[in-house]
Computed example of a mutant assay.
Amino acid sequence: MSIRSTIAAVVAVSATALTCTHAFAQQAPAPAAPVKNIVLVHGAWVDGSGWKPVYDRLTHDGYHVTIVQEPLTALADDVAATKRVIDMQDGPTILVAHSYGGSVITEAGVDPKVVGLVYVAAHAPDVGEDEAALGKKTPSYTAKQAGAVQKTADGYTFLNPDDFASDFAADLPAKQAQFESQSQILTAASVFSTPMDAAAWKTKPSWGIVAAADKIINPDLERWYYERAHSHTTVLEGASHSVYESRPKEVAAVIEEAAKHAQNG
């Protein structure tokens, strides 16, 4: 082969390689940017202020964080309150919930702006299910305590203040737990027995945190929820139901993981 022919062959091979590399680059999608909008949803008997330790960490890391204040008067009312906040977001959003709030985001999370769900010691029922019935199948420590959950004459529930610290907030400072026991948001009993109309975890990626020392929701039920939803699961040993307040570093880390990977499948 002449020198001219050899050079021509090398050029042809190089051109083919460049063409293949260019084609591969066109086919390989670029990683999606992290989601910046985070919406936090509280559970029964408390309000959104308990999210402040997590809020502080997320905003410090550059996230836009909004906290829903649910009325706790009916599941539909709480879902509507959450959807209002989702509507306020300017793009893709991670929806995070604690406890009963998990039922709320399971319905509200079907919103197209929501690209990922994070369950923090939370319920995650399927369509037609309700958390009260599921809780009876896997009862919690609190559910077995006579008189722990009290009800008003008009059908609103609260946790007996004498049981609040040990059951809901065992790993919080005593003064903080005492204050929260006396500042509970009375919650309509009906929210716990209203069946789901939607189950966003079936179509959206999800992350779940098991509070291993939870007395309000049986940790085994939390594990079951997350396994069924194929959630990326983190178990926090020794954490009470107030894990979002007592372990904000770990909880924020899971939320940020969801924000970084939700749009990449």
Rank of each mutant, 00 (worst) to 15 (best):
R4S: 12
R4K: 14
T6H: 10
I7P: 01
A8K: 14
V13A: 03
S14C: 08
T16F: 15
A17F: 05
T19I: 12
T19P: 01
C20K: 08
A23S: 07
A23K: 05
F24P: 03
F24M: 15
P31K: 02
V41A: 03
V41S: 08
G43R: 08
W45Y: 15
G48W: 12
K52L: 12
P53W: 00
D56W: 04
D56P: 01
T59P: 04
D61K: 02
Y63G: 02
I67R: 15
V68F: 05
L72G: 01
T73A: 07
A76R: 15
V79W: 06
T82Y: 03
M88K: 12
Q89N: 02
Q89K: 05
Q89W: 06
G91H: 04
P92R: 11
L95R: 02
V96E: 11
G101I: 09
G101S: 05
G102P: 11
S103F: 09
V104Q: 10
G109C: 02
G109M: 00
V110N: 11
D111R: 04
V115S: 14
L117C: 13
V118M: 03
P125Y: 02
D130R: 09
G135I: 09
K136D: 07
K136M: 08
K137E: 12
Q150I: 12
D154K: 02
D154I: 01
D154G: 00
P161G: 06
D163I: 06
P173M: 07
A177F: 06
A177G: 11
Q178D: 09
S181Y: 14
Q182C: 09
T187D: 03
F192S: 13
F192M: 12
P195Q: 08
P195I: 09
P195L: 05
D197H: 14
A199R: 01
A200C: 04
K202D: 01
T203H: 00
K204M: 01
P205H: 02
S206Y: 05
S206I: 05
G208I: 03
G208H: 07
I209F: 10
V210I: 15
L221W: 04
W224D: 12
E227I: 05
R228V: 07
S231N: 09
L236R: 04
L236G: 10
E237M: 11
G238V: 08
S240T: 06
S240W: 12
V243S: 07
Y244G: 07
R247P: 05
E250L: 02
A252S: 01
V254M: 04
A258K: 06
